[in-house]
Each structure stands twice: as structure tokens, then as C-alpha cells.
Design a protein around this nucleic acid. Structure first.
Lengths: 211, 211
DNA sequence: GTGTTTATATAAACGTGTTTATGTTAATGA
DNA sequence: TCATTAACATAAACACGTTTATATAAACAC
């Protein structure tokens, strides 16, 4: 019983996500959200109680969107290819949606999410990659202990590259950045005897616009 | 003629720097600064005109402090050693003064400094390193074209590692991070035939607390 | 000393964001 | 139909930060 809800949680999160994407987490405030939705601030307060609660949910909302893009991009791909694709998507996110990248992967997660344990933040795509270690190790018969630090290094490198691509203070085309990531990974894998066919590179770099 | 100035520009910048270091750029506001100095907001407004102007100067003020630490740490060192030390200092800054690291090396510089051309930001220690390329290339008789991309990759890796060390969402001891940076650089340099004496490593890692 | 200029205090105006108090509309159940 | 309740609007209270208007205090010039 009661009135039918016109302003849903998802509508609010969508509006908040838009503000985040356009102008950063600092612009995510109750009045701008209300303005975007053409309503008063009441429905928002009513649904989320407080802004910190809204931002907490926004974090998981955005992380979910990112995860979905990651998953769909990697779907059906072979292990090594999937690993590189995750890097391409990561870098592309930083280039095309710097505010979201910052919010998810650079900002202190405890500020938005609180002290809860989370698998987000800079460790964001780390899960993807740690899964990848097992798969690649099995496929190419390389001991995990040898492969793991290399993958870790590629992840760190990718994170650094992506962070540099934000707000293009680095002035580097996205394709070049993805290429750099790929080539570093290639060298790393070659050092443990994993050779990659040349057409793989093309297949990976085709995913540059998946974002 | 006129009254003697009690609240100098430097006192204000110092207070702002403290707030930045303690609680991030969001805490750098005129009232907290005034509170720290035990004065009204008037001297601050009077000296800087506006807060954006103050933050602009704060950027260069903080960058100068960082540069001084860098320089003094690298002073008198051999080229390769100096290169690695700059990385150690960079990572240490991220660990010990995350808010300052973020402000200088991660945040969008155009937001604090405006559209002015600057050598700061993520390209921050890049100058140091690009100087280093020339010196190392000369010393070890390696063509700069071969060395340059490697150094660039180490810089990117170091940036990623440092960014991950902020707010210790990565939960890695600083020493370990510095070691990782060193070892990656070592491998890179070895790939172009530059061998490093073992005692170098110790000398570099001794600089871990220079911050 | 008097006046002028510079540096500061006091205090208010203004904007913006959060939260809450109160009232109103719309749906449901009896 | 009427009471109840959920969903919303209106609007105010409050906190904070920035900026500005006005007054006061200190240095110096004469």
C-alpha cells in the first residue's frame, strides 16, 4: 500500500553516475541529482537516508558497470588474450571516463565505501588477472610462482600508465598506450618462454573501443 | 611605510601545506588556515586575493619542497644510482605523504594550477629521469634511443606502484615496493647490457627514509 | 603629533550542500 | 468511502566555505 514510486533507486544512481562521469565525485551532490531528475531532494533523502550511503552504493554501482564491460570483453577469449584485453579496457576507462576511473581505481576507497572490506580500488582488475595467472600457467605449462610476479608487474605498469592517461596530462594517444602495455607484457611472457602468435596482438588491440 | 606584516605569505603556505599533508586538498580552506595561524581570514585574502590563487602557489610550493628532497637525495650520486634513488623517493612520498603525492602527481594539475604550462604532475620526476637517460647512455655507451623507452617504462611502473601505495589499499611494505622497482629497473637495464654491481642496490635502498 | 598607508580584526553577505520538519498527493485496504 | 501509509513537494534550519565591507591598529613620513 502507499503511493507508487516514481523516482527509483536506479534512476537516482544513474543520475549520480552521470554527474560523476561528467564532473567527478565532487559534483555528486543531492541538489544536482534532484535537478537532473526534475524532482525535489526528498525522494533521494528518502531512498538513501544520507549522501554517504548514496556514494557507497554508487561505488558498487560503477564497479558493477565496469565489471560487466570487462567480462563481456573477455568473454570466450583465450587466457592470455583475455589478460591483455583487461588491460586495454582498464586503460580505455582511464582515457574515456577519467572521473570514473579515478573514483574506482585511484581514490581512497575507504572514503567512499568506508572501512568495509572490498575487492575494488586499485586491486580492481587484479582479480581478473589473478584468475588469469592460473589459466595461463596451466595452458603454457609454466609454474605459477614464476608467472605470478610477472603478471603482477604488468598490472602495476598498466595501472601507472592508466593513471598517467587520466586528464591527458601525458598527451599520448590511447592506442599507443595500449600498445605499450601489450609490448611490455609480451616481453615479460617471453622471458618465461611463452610465445605469442602475431595475430593475437591485433585481436587484443581491436578491443580498444570497448568502453 | 605602513604596518609591519605579521602573517607572511610563507606562513600561510606553510599552514596550507600542513592541512594538505594531514587531510588532503579538500581540507585546504581559508578558515582552517586562519585557525591554524590564529588570525582572521583577512590576511589570507589580502595576500592571495582568492583561494584559487593560493592553491596555485601551493602547488609550486609543494613541488619545490619535493624537488629539493629529490635533488639532495640524488646529489653526488652516479647516474644509475641517482635514477633509482629518484624512484625510491617517489614511492616514499606516496607512502608517507599520500595527500601531497596525490596533489602533485595524481590530481589533474589544471584544476589547481589552471591551464598554465607546467612541468609538474605525473611528469613530475620525469625530468629527472630524462636527464638520467643522457647520463646513463653516455656512461655505459648505450644509444639513447634504446635506453629511453626502457627508462620511460620504469618511470611508468614506478608511478603505478606509488599510486597503489597511497592510502595503503595495497598493504605492501614500502621497502618491498622499492625493491620491486629496483629489480624491474635492473632487468630492464640488463636487457641492454648494463650490469650493476651488487652494492649499488644497498646504496639505493638506504635512501628509503629520505622523505 | 598628524596624516597616510598598510596590515589586521570584526562581521556580514552570499552561495552551496545536507538534513529535517511539515504538508500534500496518490495508492491500497477495510 | 474513509483511513492509512508510502512517496513526494515545499521550505526551512544548519553548517561551511568564500568573499567583501567596515573599522581598527600599527608603521612611517612630514
Amino acid at each position: 500500500m502507499g503511493r507508487k514510486t516514481k523516482i527509483t533507486r536506479e534512476m537516482i544512481l544513474d543520475a549520480a553516475y552521470e554527474l560523476l562521469d561528467e564532473s567527478g565525485i565532487g559534483a555528486v551532490a543531492i541538489k544536482p541529482i534532484a535537478a537532473k531528475l526534475g524532482c525535489s531532494t526528498q525522494p533521494i533523502s528518502w531512498q538513501f537516508g544520507s549522501m554517504t550511503e548514496l556514494k557507497k552504493e554508487l561505488f558498487f554501482y560503477a564497479a558493477g558497470k565496469m565489471g560487466a564491460i570487462m567480462s563481456s570483453s573477455m568473454e570466450g577469449k583465450e587466457a592470455v588474450e583475455a589478460f591483455f584485453i583487461s588491460g586495454v579496457v582498464y586503460i580505455s576507462l582511464a582515457c574515456e571516463h577519467p572521473h570514473i576511473f579515478r573514483f574506482l581505481c585511484v581514490d581512497d576507497p575507504t572514503e567512499s565505501v568506508g572501512e568495509e572490506v572490498l575487492e575494488g580500488a586499485s586491486i580492481f582488475n587484479m582479480q581478473f588477472d589473478m584468475e588469469a595467472v592460473g589459466l595461463i600457467a596451466k595452458e603454457y605449462k609454466v609454474p605459477e610462482e614464476k608467472l605470478s610476479p610477472l603478471v603482477r608487474d604488468v598490472v602495476i605498469y598498466t595501472h601507472g600508465l592508466a593513471a598517467m592517461m587520466m586528464y591527458d596530462s601525458f598527451r599520448l594517444p590511447r592506442e599507443t598506450a595500449c600498445m605499450m602495455m601489450y609490448e611490455l607484457g609480451e616481453r615479460m611472457l617471453e622471458s618465461v618462454g611463452i610465445e605469442l602468435p602475431e595475430e593475437r596482438k591485433k585481436a587484443v588491440l581491436e578491443n580498444i573501443n570497448r568502453c
